[in-house]
Design a binder for these strands. Structure first.
Lengths: 227, 227
DNA sequence: TTCTTCTCTGAATAGGTGTTCAGTTCTTCA
DNA sequence: TGAAGAACTGAACACCTATTCAGAGAAGAA
């Protein structure tokens, strides 16, 4: 009389888990991390509040996993874009553009993951996520420096500052508020990218060229969500 | 039999108000806005919790006033530094350096005022504060552009990005953690300032010169608080 | 079909923090 | 000095939301 999970059950359990995570992601994307509350998320996932706890030991774990998920996706996108570029400078430009597009495409979510305060328990995850992204950017800056395209500098600080500039100008409270218009959005992404590249020492003229080259297909911008 | 406040009483009331605000400021400086809780603040100010409500209608009002206070000070410092500079570029460098020094000097407070999420009621105040600072920086960028020292650009976005770069690299979670050492701190401030200036289009060589010129007296750095 | 084990439910619980208010203490004024 | 008004106190209250858990519902084994 041993109970053994049927394949079908295993699938359903996995699906529920995903549904809960997806619900959390949606909630975060609509109202920031503050909106990721157990009861509402449960409703969204068509599940009772208690059920959430059968999949995640605590809210902190849920959010941690959400953050890890999102940054895994983001990191992959950055690497893909950068690796496809012809040289170190283009790679950096592509990486930066990718980050810019991602944050404007999911502003609330990005804000929640980046800046919104949460339990100390999730800070570790968030920090790790940030480190990964910053580390990737730093790697690309380093490559450009080694190639002689950028002046020698504290690349860790530079990567951090670069991300700060992007985030603040694109999803911060002072970010332009008319980003629903695709044209404006594209402008904002390009302007922010230009600023970021100049910050690490790319000369103005060259930076403008790189930004244009790195311009992403409209398809990617089309994913942007109003809000 | 009209009760009339004696001068002494008026003074005491004012002192209490200040004490409460100061307590709130201290708390924020130690643990961010999350640490600004009525009961602890009251204890710090040697007052009962209820008393706080005789001076501030609600916690949101208390925090709003705190934010307004801090940014008033900051704005004044920025203007003082910039106005004392010999030209538009130096003025911008001085302004940026001032912001950098301020944020590293009170990291937790800065973080709380800048990024930590709070009641919607205080968001207006925080936004206003941010706008003021960004506006001042924007003004200085504009002056430098008009003087032909910087390329034409979206100065509002540039100011925002510039502040983002500073904040993220100096008080963000990835900021260097050895800023207790005055030498390191000075380095970090200068590096961040350099990045910020380059971002808006100051050429590398010139930026380095401006950063050195704008170097603030050690006295100002001495106010930095460990943490 | 029936028993056992797993899974889900959602109302109840728990903990934390802003806010109130009846009672106390202090201050003014005659 | 005493009456009246103002300020202060701090325990009680209120609200919000994460978490629990006893009972209900499904799913597997026999």
């Amino acid at each position: 009389m041993v109970y053994r999970r049927t394949h079908q059950v295993v699938k359903r359990l996995a699906a529920r888990r995903s549904a809960i995570l997806a619900a959390a992601r949606d909630a975060a994307n609509e109202g920031g991390m503050a909106a990721v509350q157990i009861a509402p998320v449960a409703v969204r996932a068509n599940v009772a509040a208690g059920t959430v706890y059968r999949y995640f030991p605590s809210k902190a774990d849920l959010i941690s996993e959400l953050i890890a998920d999102v940054s895994r996706d983001e990191l992959a996108a950055i690497r893909r874009a950068a690796d496809a570029a012809p040289g170190p400078s283009s790679a950096l430009a592509a990486a930066v553009t990718t980050v810019a597009v991602h944050v404007v495409s999911h502003r609330k979510l990005a804000w929640g993951i980046l800046a919104e305060p949460v339990d100390v328990d999730v800070n570790a995850t968030r920090l790790a996520s940030r480190r990964e992204i910053a580390g990737e950017i730093e790697t690309r800056i380093n490559a450009a420096v080694r190639a002689g395209h950028l002046p020698a500098q504290d690349t860790a600080l530079a990567a951090t500052a670069l991300l700060g500039a992007l985030h603040e100008s694109l999803v911060g409270p002072l970010a332009p508020d008319n980003l629903d218009d695709p044209a404006k959005l594209r402008d904002a992404v390009q302007t922010a990218t230009l600023l970021a590249l100049r910050a690490v020492g790319v000369m103005d003229a060259r930076a403008r060229g790189l930004v244009v080259q790195a311009a992403l297909p409209a398809k990617m911008l089309a994913n942007a969500q109003p809000g």
